[in-house]
Design a protein around this nucleic acid. Structure first.
Ligand SMILES: [Zn+2]
Ligand SMILES: [Zn+2]
Ligand SMILES: [Zn+2]
Ligand SMILES: [Zn+2]
Lengths: 156, 156
DNA sequence: AGACGATATGTTATAATATATCAACCCGCA
DNA sequence: TGCGGGTTGATATATTATAACATATCGTCT
């Protein structure tokens, strides 16, 4: 596993490089990164946390970018289905991908104390091998781990 | 991994042994398997599939066991928190545990074609090792795999 | 028996999350 | 110019889940 994600980081750079990566990927794949889609991604990147769809919608509404649920759900659908953001099923919340474009099977580490969510990436060899053996064809995985991050573990 | 779960089985035995196991566990731990809780578990066992809370509630209502959402959510909360049933986050649905009582970290294999959900149990050594190394304390895992079960894979 | 606490249930209302549907618009292209 | 795909606007509704508060039930202590 790499990129455990609970460490401090240069957030301004983190946002701008992720945006640039997504822009490049959209250009390459002829995907339309429209203003609302782009703004939703920016919001997720800036906040750098798992956000509910209605939290995002409130921000969009305040900026005059739309106030009805379909606005945000459409943007999220675009971002998630193209791998630029992820849905955390356990939280019904959305998170910008920390390495968009790369083909990856994310693992999310959710701290129940500080609510931070870190995206890790690791080879799930156990899972692949077992599923293959059983004849199950894996198309998508949801791997979410709840617990305490290093900082909150320390504090407790 | 064992107990891949897509195979045929003696369902009557499957239901009665699971119920008996839960009854024993409740007696041992002084948990109250009240009529509604027991009936919800029975429903999940009989149907042997992931069911939405309101699907279950409709059955309870038809039987005069309560018609308001809290009735079923309370029963599900009891069953889930004691390990007698599981919530499939990806589906917002609930499933009876196939080996209640045992301390386990389930893995769910969800077939997108036939909607069958199989509960497997496997050691997530990759995950444990990586999380330990990163200082993250795992308290709970959600591992859900979407794809095609052997039968549907065959058919396709 | 009577008072009490812990647990479970009944009931009403509402919150939170997500989708269906249909009309309008935009833009590249035949 | 007219078509066609993708996107947006707008209204309504579906689905999933919880808050809040009253009532009931049961064992325990006095
Ligand atoms: Zn990612
Ligand atoms: Zn934390
Ligand atoms: Zn069965
Ligand atoms: Zn189980």
């Amino acid at each position: 596993m790499h990129d455990i994600g609970f460490a401090n980081h240069d957030h301004a750079t983190c946002v701008t490089t992720a945006l640039a990566t997504v822009e490049t990927a959209c250009a390459a794949q002829k995907l339309q990164l429209t203003p609302t889609r782009r703004r939703v991604l920016e919001i997720l990147l800036e906040e750098h946390r798992a956000m509910g769809a209605y939290d995002i919608l409130a921000i969009l509404a305040a900026e005059g970018l739309g106030s009805q649920p379909p606005v945000v759900y459409r943007a999220l659908d675009f971002l998630v289905s193209n791998g630029f953001a992820h849905k955390i099923e356990k939280l019904n919340a959305y998170l910008a991908c920390t390495h968009p474009g790369e083909n990856h099977s994310p693992v999310f580490l959710i701290c129940r104390a500080c609510e931070t969510v870190a995206e890790a990436s690791m080879p799930m060899t156990d899972l692949r091998r077992a599923a293959d053996g059983a004849g199950f064809l894996i198309e998508n995985t949801v791997i979410e781990v709840e617990g305490l991050c290093p900082a909150c573990r320390e504090a407790a």
